[in-house]
Design a binder for these strands. Structure first.
Length: 906
RNA sequence: GGGCGAAUAGCUCAGCUGGUCUAGAGCGCCUGCCUUACACGCAGGAAGUCGGGGGUUCGAAUCCCUCUUCGCCCACCA
């Protein structure tokens, strides 16, 4: 049964999808029955997401680890799924509605949620299907979604449990509010962005003071002054002490404020006087709480100014009513200026918080929200890290994790959204009882009557994500999967998600199951463009992984991101030049393909196993490649064990290309063509080495290796994906063979170098007269005479002193024996007579012409470098470059002169 | 304001606990080759005072200090 010949160029698109199907049909992605479990849970992409190259990197790394452990015989489970992504998904569907000219309020809550579900049902599978194109070997039978019924039950169970443990409470405080999304945000969702703003200095006239007497406050948000309730100063600051107890006039209103001391004030900042707006600033809120101050809200949820109807009088001027905060800022500044109350304005660079979903400037806002008390959860997590049970790669991220946990703040988990897990808190309209419940109650649990209403808010998305490592396995039910696959082994993710997700999973795992959800946290870099900007849709600098897969194949994509991603560093790719970015991966796949073509075409039937070959039948090159193979196995295995995926890819790459293809295959060819002595041994070695290298490469480039594997004779229908990982066999290690073969390589390279330098046409052969530096070299050269002659294109190899044919001492070439000499690293010398191989006279002429050309160039360059105009006008860098050019030309000229001498040119 | 990371060939990066580094790879560049596995290739080659300065050491790209430039994270100075 002959298979069709393999084409000379590897065509990934011809085989990738059918290879993936073979894996799936064989069920290799499901964990095997026996074996120690090895579990990775996939960071669930947003259900609305479309695959970008960041997903590509993240999931390729996971796949490499999973495939490696699967081949090592572990019961490998990679559990996939998607996240409902509350705000992100709601925003997306709202944008779709906006195109129809509708808002979510037009549909109503139920209608809107149904609409989102419809969207999720239609598109939610997209990203997971795309992951298949890059070869992700997830167990798709266990795919989960954070809004699955079972998963939702876990979320609800979690909430109620925390409530029962007293770890959930309602907080009345200033939180981050997004006026566009109309919801509260957690600290992590309100991201800092540096921006250029202004610091306004505003005069608050002293009531009953002399004319013009005022305290000056500094603020970046003048429009909030209408919410001021006091002006605060530091209790001990001498320069502001005079004002304590005085009253000042709130500008543009009829309200007077007290000046009072509070230690939170930094007397050095601004003027030392601080306007206190408790409802719109977190620090001011705390001051307000300490002193029992009123806390008027002067904006509506959409951040438009609204008068709160304060008993002390109208706060927000009529003209501002309903005006957006930024317009209100302009208006206020103009009015202050007109009233002579604007002391000065300074440019001011500071960090403001923006909604991480829509980039709107967050408005601090006083409101009621549900919070999780975090300190009790954080302590065990800290302990796990500090005791070394939880490990980070690279280690430094552990410090980030630790620092965040050590300074943890309570977590605002309520969102004023419709898409998500609704908060299971119920309230009796009759008696006011409020409680969390695992089931929707029919009646009040206390008074048994009265209509019961559920809290309208939903939970922060991360309140469901933090259960991912175990809720996906059926928790809180005691399922077989949970028993077998919890805890997992490694979490692979990006640094930006350490707080959002990693830390919270650790806390949840420890709190609810008493065990860490994973032992290792592997933090990989970010994919950036050549200007080191993060790839993003809005910048238009993204790379579409599917386009890469289509053009160069999934293996090229995988190889490129793995080889280009040393632990913890960013991956730089050029979105404008996919060819340059991904060609190395494609070229490598092609190299492997063609090495495979050569090997497979010469193997014939199944070769005998290596163990059946008498060692005496092995030649030096065989012993060398077998020894190198053991080293490659060891290097790749250790690199993968230590999460150094790029080193693993690199080691396998160089073994295949630089050793197997460039040297072993080139020298073994004569033994493979036809029935020659040593052919059987060569075939056995080749089969063994090739099989091994396919295995080593499979985790990184699974498609092409599986395809080549299927062509190996005697493999039947077995799959490489579940083939056993190679084990380094030290009995094949042969340092002596390695040393000898290195001698051979050095000699071959030296002769090749001479040939190239003197322009010996590839079709011509030359002779070489070699004086070995020692017995090792002499033996190696003698034994490998044929190989050396072949690889170096020699007609004959003469070991100096051994034959009388041409005992020319290499050190003293005569004019009559024009030629070149070279010295090997070990001191062996090589003399290559060239009189027969090239037309010496012509070569002399060529070299002379070349030398003349260089002389002319040097002359011109000397003139240029002497030109005062050039020296005075050209930038120093340019001058330096020109000088360097001159130096290099001079060296070239000297080298030419040496060659001319060697050839005996006149 | 605090912390972390990076600075090595034109580009992207290796170089892990100081000495096989007279500093490597891939891409790019130069020269020659369509040599029956591969031109997505083969052979040969050029190219770096390892960001600046100081120090420790017999010896430093590698350790320490300092400066410069980039990047990231954290932070209630309005």
């Amino acid at each position: 049964m002959t298979r069709p010949a393999l084409p000379p160029q590897y065509d990934p698109s011809a085989t990738e999808s059918s290879t993936y199907r073979r894996w799936q049909d064989a069920g290799v992605f499901q964990p095997r029955t026996g074996g120690e479990p090895y579990v990775i849970v996939m960071p669930p992409p947003n259900v609305t997401a479309v695959l970008h190259v960041g997903h590509g990197l993240n999931n390729t790394i996971q796949d490499v680890l999973i495939r490696f452990e699967r081949m090592r015989g572990r019961a490998a489970l990679w559990l996939p799924g998607t996240d409902h992504a509350g705000i992100a998904t709601q925003n997306m569907v709202e944008r779709l509605l906006a195109r129809e000219g509708k808002t979510r309020f037009d549909l109503g809550r139920e209608g809107f949620v149904e609409r989102v579900w419809q969207y999720v049902r239609e598109t939610g599978q997209t990203i997971l299907d795309q992951l298949k194109a890059i070869g992700a070997s997830c167990d798709w039978t266990r795919t989960r979604f954070t809004l699955d019924p079972g998963y939702s039950a876990a979320v609800r169970h979690t909430f109620v449990t925390l409530w029962e443990q007293g770890l959930i409470y309602r907080g009345h405080r200033v939180i981050h509010w997004c006026p566009r999304c109309l919801t509260a945000l957690s600290d992590e969702e309100a991201e800092f962005h540096e921006s250029d703003g202004k610091l306004y200095y505003i005069r608050y006239p002293v009531v009953g003071g002399e004319a013009g007497q005022a305290v000056v406050v500094a603020t970046t948000r003048p429009e909030t002054l209408f919410g001021d309730v006091v002006v605060a100063v530091h209790p001990e600051a001498p320069h502001t002490r005079w004002a304590i107890g005085r009253r000042v006039q709130l500008p543009l209103t009829h309200i007077a404020l007290a000046v009072m001391p509070d230690a939170a004030v930094d007397p050095q900042f601004g003027t030392g006087f601080v306007k206190v707006t408790p409802a719109h600033d977190a620090t001011d809120f705390e001051i307000g709480q300490r002193h029992g101050l009123p806390m008027p809200l002067i904006m509506d949820p959409e951040a438009r100014l609204r008068d709160p109807g304060d008993p002390v009088g109208r706060r927000v001027p009529e003209a501002l009513e309903g005006m957006d905060r930024f317009a209100a800022r302009k208006w206020t500044v103009a009015q202050l200026e007109a009233a002579g109350l604007l002391a000065k304005v300074e440019p001011y660079r500071h960090a403001i918080r923006r909604c991480h979903r829509c980039d709107t400037v967050v408005e601090p806002r006083l409101s009621d929200q549900w919070f999780v008390k975090m300190a009790p959860l954080a302590d065990p997590a800290l302990e796990a890290y500090r005791s070394g049970k939880l490990k980070f790669v690279p280690e430094r991220w552990g410090g980030v994790f630790e620092n965040w946990l050590a300074n943890i703040r309570d977590w605002n988990i309520s969102r004023q959204l419709w898409w998500g897990h609704r908060i299971p808190i119920f309230r009796c309209q009759a008696c006011g009882e409020e409680w969390a419940d695992r089931q929707d109650p029919a009646a009040c649990r206390r008074c048994g009557q009265g209509p019961v209403t559920q809290d309208p808010d939903v939970l922060d998305t991360w309140f469901s994500s933090w259960l991912w490592p175990f809720a996906t396995l059926g928790w809180p039910e005691e399922t077989d999967d949970l028993r077998r696959f919890y805890p997992g082994h490694t979490m692979v993710t990006a640094a930006e998600i350490i707080f959002f997700w990693v830390a919270r999973m650790v806390m949840a795992g420890l709190h609810f199951l008493g065990r860490l959800p994973f032992e290792w946290v592997y933090i990989h870099g970010t994919v950036r463009d050549t200007q080191h900007r993060k790839m993003s849709k809005s910048l238009g600098n993204g790379i579409d992984p599917l386009e890469v897969v289509q053009r160069y194949g999934a293996d090229a994509l995988r190889f490129t991101v793995v080889a280009g991603a040393p632990v913890g560093t960013d991956v730089i790719l050029d979105p404008k030049d996919l060819e340059t970015s991904f060609a190395p991966g494609r070229n490598f796949a092609n190299k492997l393909w063609n090495a495979g073509r050569l090997i497979l075409s010469t193997l014939g039937g199944a070769p005998e196993p290596l163990s059946a070959v008498p060692r005496a039948d092995l030649e030096l090159a065989d012993r060398w490649i077998l020894s190198r193979t053991q080293r490659a196995v060891k290097a790749v295995t250790e690199a993968l064990e230590r999460f150094r995926l790029n080193d693993a890819a690199g080691a396998a790459y160089h073994f295949l290309w630089d050793e197997l293809a460039d040297w072993y295959l080139e020298q073994v060819k004569p033994r493979l063509y036809g029935q020659v002595p040593g052919g059987e041994a060569a075939r056995a070695v080749l089969a063994h080495v090739f099989e091994t290298v396919l295995k080593l490469l499979h985790p990184v480039i699974p498609f092409i290796t599986e395809e080549l594997w299927s062509h190996l004779p005697g493999r039947g229908t077995t799959l490489l994906a579940t083939a056993p990982w190679p084990v380094a066999d030290s009995s094949w290690l042969d340092p002596d063979a390695e040393a000898r073969f290195a001698q051979v390589q050095a000699l071959v390279s030296a002769v090749r170098s001479v040939r190239a330098e003197y322009g010996v046409h590839p079709s011509r052969t030359v002779r070489a007269i070699v004086r070995p530096a020692g017995p090792l070299a002499a033996q190696a050269f003698e034994a490998e005479r044929r190989t050396i002659e072949r690889l170096a294109k020699l007609a004959s190899l003469t070991l100096d002193g051994e034959t009388a044919e041409s005992p020319v001492p290499a050190a003293q070439p005569q004019a009559a024996t024009a030629g070149a000499h070279a010295v090997l690293p070990d001191g062996s010398t090589v003399f290559v007579p060239l009189a027969d191989a090239i037309d010496v006279r012509k070569e002399c002429e060529r070299l002379s012409r070349e030398r003349e050309r260089l002389e002319r160039q040097l002359e011109a360059q000397a003139a240029r470098l002497a030109n005062p105009e050039f020296l005075s006008r050209a930038p120093a860098q340019v001058i330096e470059r020109e000088r360097a050019k001159e130096r290099s030309w001079r060296e070239q000229r000297d080298a030419l002169a040496a060659k001319l001498r060697d050839l005996g040119c006149s």
